[in-house]
Simulated scan of single mutants.
Amino acid sequence: MTEEKLVERVTALFADSDAAQRKMIRLYAETNDAIEASAIIDSGAEVLHMLQGGLRPEVLVLDSVLSDTTIFPLLRSIRQQQIEYEPHIIVTLMPSAAPQIEKILTLGAECTIFKPYSLPELFDTVYQTAASGPRLNRYLVHESVTAQLRTLGCYKNLAYGINYLQEAVYIAVCNRQACSLGELCTKAGEPFGVNGPAVRSALERLNARLYKSNTPAYQMLCERNGKTPQDRLTVSELLEAVIARTHHDLRC
């Protein structure tokens, strides 16, 4: 079975005059499942050339000072281009440039991010700027579940178990379906062409990994379920805890 990517990717063009920053963006993009870097460049002229040439990223991430221009003439030039779509635009800038934000937004940017920023923050902003509806909900669920698993002691190991857990939580949270564990496992396996018992088995292995990690977060979940910190959660208890936390994160 090949790994499925159920989060639909957002395409983005990044323009930054700092070579080190471009390198970090490129490396981070290579490991990010949610954002596809259509181009990573250093000048406003390249941005305009690529748009005129037919490149259609959903998001433009533009530094306020590029190698050949500043943000104001670049935003005006983008607006003046005869292209059939309007990209979402994010502008990165130093805190000292805060007085320029109102003008930047007036010229077509949707939001700004102060430098220095973390790459997870930047990429999360890119996704949430472009996506909406079920596409955004699935992304938010997957981000919440991934963050919870890190706290509970699991990273990219047992990838298929993580994918099944993410899908099960998405079904429970966003589709608001009241399902038994068996029904939820069956539904979570459908996008992967996997039956319910195989999903249940993968979730059992994932739960065993978390139990062996013995993190304070896992021990706390045990205590909340009336167990000792040394006990092991059932798959149902783990799912219920992750679903509840995801509900809280999404405020739904």
Rank of each mutant, 00 (worst) to 15 (best):
T2Y: 12
E4S: 15
L6M: 05
V7Y: 04
V10H: 02
S17V: 10
S17N: 14
A19E: 08
Q21C: 12
Q21N: 13
R22G: 02
L27V: 07
L27C: 05
L27M: 13
Y28E: 00
A34C: 10
I35P: 01
I40C: 05
I40Y: 00
I41L: 06
I41R: 00
S43W: 08
S43I: 01
S43C: 03
E46D: 09
V47E: 00
V47G: 04
L48V: 08
H49E: 15
H49D: 12
M50P: 04
Q52H: 07
G53D: 12
L60D: 02
L62W: 07
L62Q: 09
D63K: 01
D63M: 11
S64C: 13
V65F: 07
V65C: 06
S67T: 15
L75M: 11
R76I: 09
S77D: 13
Q80P: 08
Q81R: 11
E84F: 12
P87Y: 00
I89S: 07
I89G: 00
L93K: 06
L93Q: 06
S96K: 14
P99T: 05
Q100M: 11
I101C: 03
E102I: 14
K103F: 09
T106W: 08
T106P: 02
T106C: 08
G108W: 04
E110Y: 13
I113E: 03
K115S: 15
S118M: 14
P120G: 03
F123Y: 00
D124G: 15
D124Y: 04
D124I: 03
V126G: 02
Y127H: 04
Q128E: 14
Q128H: 11
S132M: 14
P134Y: 05
R135L: 13
L136T: 04
N137L: 15
R138Q: 10
L140I: 10
V141D: 02
E143M: 13
S144E: 00
S144R: 01
V145G: 10
T146Q: 14
G153F: 06
L158G: 05
A159V: 13
G161M: 02
G161D: 00
I162P: 00
Y164D: 01
Q166F: 13
Y170G: 09
A172G: 02
Q177T: 12
Q177V: 08
C179E: 08
E183L: 06
L184I: 10
L184Q: 00
C185E: 04
T186K: 07
K187T: 09
K187G: 01
A188G: 02
P191F: 02
P191E: 07
G193A: 12
G196K: 05
P197S: 06
P197Q: 03
V199E: 01
E204L: 13
R205S: 15
R205E: 09
A208Q: 04
R209A: 06
L210M: 10
Y211A: 15
Y211H: 12
S213E: 07
N214Q: 15
A217W: 04
Q219R: 13
Q219W: 01
M220Q: 14
E223D: 14
R224K: 12
N225D: 15
N225G: 06
G226F: 04
G226A: 14
K227I: 13
Q230M: 15
D231S: 14
T234I: 03
V235C: 11
V235K: 09
V235N: 08
E237Q: 14
L238E: 03
E240D: 14
E240L: 12
I243N: 09
H248A: 15
D249W: 06
D249H: 12
D249I: 11
C252P: 07
C252I: 15
C252K: 09
